[in-house]
Write a protein that binds this DNA or RNA. Structure first.
Lengths: 157, 157
DNA sequence: TAAGATATGAATATCACTATCAAAAAGGTA
DNA sequence: TACCTTTTTGATAGTGATATTCATATCTTA
């Protein structure tokens, strides 16, 4: 897969158009609005949350929530966005124009910190090989209490 | 928390009864049926899947799916079962009478291989600390193609 | 720019899970 | 054991996130 790390918006858009063409899909205003909103807000979005933001930034499109779901699936299938499942807190999406990273999540406030660790990646590769697997992907989420929520706790009680 | 690794079913049952008593909850045939089914089938169950198996093994109980959900939550809250979220493949439960481990999952056939790696755990702890988090839990799933599915692929095409 | 395709938004359906509720069962107590 | 109180149960309805349907709108390319 391509590495989107250093991609400008124009390059990303070109990539997206290429994917659409290759699959006989159409380039629409809605799809672009969603892609650009994701690109310009490098946060982790809920589908709902992204829907509201796109609606706000592009009111003339009168975008529907179904289109947001459909487009997110499309983008994820093609590696342009990635998602993490936070169980009770829902599924969050982010644009995949950053280097690979994993997530450290606060169970109290939902804050997400990104990190990367080469050493763990190597160990994962090794584990897969030992078990006869070809590693294609991985998911690593660390859960804990962030420093702010730790402070709140001691105050609160 | 207690380590359930070497626990016999009798010990597990005793533990469960203790938890129930401590919370003023009752020991019922349904709850026991679910616990024993989990214990005797050391696999990863979907709620639905476990429901069907308990129904089959204990038809006289006429168990309802709601009870399965309720009991799984209860068992998970008390550390007797643990769960993993497999995204599209749903949430799966297993009895927590094994040492902590993570999962290596085949994206083609859904096969799950368990593994543990001390070194990764230490690195995770370290990452959490560096970011001011108190680590409470983690989720690590490696996705890949298992050796069997690799063989099928080369044959198939 | 017309033809033939896909995409869209609104509404509806689905899926996993949760809440509600009347009836049943558990487990103290006498 | 019989009673009494509380919790649990199964059935069912409800929920929220996501998927599907369908008539209309929009894109692409010829």
């Amino acid at each position: 897969m391509k590495n989107f790390e250093t991609m400008s918006y124009d390059e990303l858009l070109k990539e997206f158009k290429g994917i659409l063409k290759a699959n006989a899909l159409k380039f629409t205003k809605q799809r672009e609005a969603i892609l650009s909103t994701l690109y310009n807000n490098p946060k982790h979005f809920t589908s709902e949350c992204l829907y509201l933001l796109v609606k706000q930034k592009h009111p003339e499109l009168n975008i529907g929530i179904a289109t947001v779901y459909r487009t997110l699936s499309l983008l994820e299938e093609n590696g342009l966005v990635s998602s993490i499942s936070l169980g009770a807190q829902g599924k969050k999406f982010e644009i995949a124009n950053k280097p690979h990273h994993d997530h450290l999540i606060c169970s109290e406030c939902g804050k997400i910190v990104e990190f990367e660790n080469e050493q763990i990646e190597r160990l994962q590769q090794q584990i897969a090989e030992e078990n006869g697997f070809i590693l294609t992907d991985h998911l690593m989420q660390l859960y804990g209490i962030c420093s702010e929520c730790q402070k709140k706790r001691t105050k609160g009680d």
